[in-house]
Amino acid sequence: MALYILCTILFSLGLYCILRKRNIIKIIIGVIIAEYAVNLFFVLIGYRVEGRAPIHAPDQKILNMVDPLPQAIVLTAIVIGLATTALLIAIAMRIYEKYGTFDITKIKELKG
């Protein structure tokens, strides 16, 4: 249970970072933190105490195994997250070239 609460706190921390920070790089870090919290949550769903990997061997009986599907899914989610992050950072670099700042209060050409 404590793990789930920590996970929620991590997610809220990421959201806080996205909503409150003014620096573009910090916002990107916020997105990454929130993303990892969701990934962690997904892995926790498949976890069992003292479970083992569900690999079948002829002379073994599997009594208590972890669910492998969330792990496969999280792997995909991590790759997607990598693409998003890379693109965000590329855009941030271009923004710095054009505006000369990372401060979003100074990057306000578009209104409302």
């Binding site: 990107i28 929130a34 855009i91 923004i95």
Partner: peptide, 26 residues
């Protein structure tokens, strides 16, 4: 300038939306 700013805003908000979808799926 405008395109980059709009794209950044869009990307951040949309990825937050995706995170909520992933959380719901989990």
């Amino acid at each position: 300038k405008h395109e980059l700013e709009a794209a950044f805003k869009y990307a951040v908000m949309s990825s937050v939306g995706s995170l909520f979808i992933l959380l719901a799926i989990a």
